[in-house]
Write a protein that binds this DNA or RNA. Structure first.
Lengths: 189, 189
DNA sequence: CTAAAATATGGAGATCATCTCCACTTGTCA
DNA sequence: TGACAAGTGGAGATGATCTCCATATTTTAG
C-alpha cells in the first residue's frame, strides 16, 4: 500500500542527534525545565529542524520511549528463548524493576509524559512490550506455572504501575513487596 | 504558632466557584485543551482572581484531587468501622474501582496531573488516603487475614496503578483480574 | 563530473498562552 | 455610616511555541 520513501542522510543524522540529546535530558530529569526550543540547541540543529522531526514535546518523548520499550521487549524475548516460561516471567519482571532503578530520571519522566499523552500514541508505542509480556504470560499459563484465568493485560497493568508510582519515598522496598504479592497472586489457584 | 486569618466571604465563594468549574472540566476530560485563563471565565471571575487562588495549573488540580481523596478516605473509614478488616479492605478496593469507573475523565486527568506534578504536592495531597489504606492493611494483617510482611505502601502502589493505567482499552476486565491477583497474593502465605 | 530536482535546514519573527500589576470594588468592623 | 482592609478584574508585559521561506545540502539523471 504505502510506499516508504528513503529520508535523506542528513535528516536521519539530525533526527538521531535530537533523540540522543533528549535521552540525556530525560535521564537528568530536566525535561520539564527546558524550553522545547532548547532541545534544538542541545542537538546542534535549528528549531525548524526540531519541529519538523517532532511536532510536539510529546512526539519527542514518544520517540525516546519507543527506544526504551524496544530494549525491554528484546530482553523479554531473550528470556523466553532460554528459560521455562514461569521462571522467565519472574526474572523479566525483576529485571525490569532493576532497569528502572538505574535510569530513575528517565523512568519518571517517561511515565509522566505517557500518562499525560494521548491513548493512541501510548498504545502504539507500548505495543512491542505488550506483545512480549503477553507471550511470556501466555506461555507460563500454558505450562501451568501460573493461573490461566488472568489475561496478560492485567500483568501489563501491574508493570505500568511501577513507573507511575516511581516517586514514592520508599519505592525500592515497596516495589519488591508489590512484585512478590503479584507473583504470588498469579501462582495462587 | 501561625495565626489563621478568616478570608473574606466573597473570596471563599470565588475559590469554591473555581474548584467547581474545574471539577466539571476535569470530568469532561478537557483539562489539557483549555487555556489556564479560561478557568477564570468558566468560574465567572477575572484572571487575577484565578491566579491569586491557584498560582499554577497544578495547584488547581491538587485542590480537585484533595476533594476526591477525602471522599475515598471517608469511605475507607466507614468500612473499617463496620466490617472485619480483611473484608473491609477487599470491599474498599473494589469500591474504589467502581468510583473511578463512574468518573472516568476525572480519574484519568488527575492521574496525569499527579504523575507530572511535584512529589511534595502529591505526597501531601494523598496523605489522607494513604493513612486510611494503611489502617485497613495493618488491621487486616493483625487480624491474620492477609500476610504481614507487606507494608501498606505496596498496596497503595497497586491502587495507584489503577489510575495510571486508566486508558487501557480493556481496563474494566483487566482491573478486575488485577485486583483479584493482588488480593490473592496478599492472602498467600 | 555536472547540473537540475528534490529534500532538508536554520533562525527571525509572528502568534499565543501565562502571569503581573494596580486602579477600583466589595466586605468588615467599630 | 465611614474608613480601612481585603479582594477583584482585566489590560498589557512577558516569554515560550511554532511557522515560514530564502538558503544549503543531498540525490538523481544525463
Amino acid at each position: 500500500m504505502a510506499s516508504e520513501k528513503q529520508p535523506r542522510a542528513d535528516a536521519v543524522r539530525n533526527r538521531a542527534a535530537i533523540v540522543d540529546a533528549a535521552r540525556a535530558v530525560f535521564d537528568a530529569g530536566e525535561f520539564f525545565d527546558l524550553r522545547f526550543d532548547d532541545f534544538a540547541g542541545r542537538a546542534g540543529v535549528g528549531t525548524g529542524t526540531l519541529y519538523r522531526h517532532f511536532p510536539t514535546r510529546e512526539a519527542l518523548a514518544a520517540a525516546v520511549y519507543e527506544n526504551e520499550i524496544a530494549t525491554l521487549a528484546a530482553r523479554a524475548g531473550e528470556l523466553r528463548d532460554t528459560l521455562p516460561a514461569g521462571e522467565a516471567l519472574d526474572i523479566f519482571v525483576r529485571d525490569m524493576v532493576d532497569h528502572m532503578r538505574s535510569h530513575e530520571g528517565l523512568a519518571r519522566t517517561l511515565a509522566a509524559m505517557m500518562t499525560a499523552g494521548s491513548s493512541d500514541v501510548r498504545a502504539a508505542s507500548s505495543e512491542p512490550l505488550e506483545r512480549a509480556v503477553a507471550e511470556l504470560v501466555t506461555a507460563a499459563a500454558r505450562e501451568g506455572s501460573i493461573r490461566s484465568d488472568v489475561r496478560p493485560g492485567a500483568v501489563m497493568m501491574a508493570l505500568h504501575s511501577l513507573g507511575a508510582a516511581y516517586d514514592r519515598p520508599d519505592w525500592r522496598a515497596e516495589t519488591d513487596e508489590f512484585i512478590t504479592v503479584m507473583l504470588n497472586g498469579l501462582r495462587a489457584r
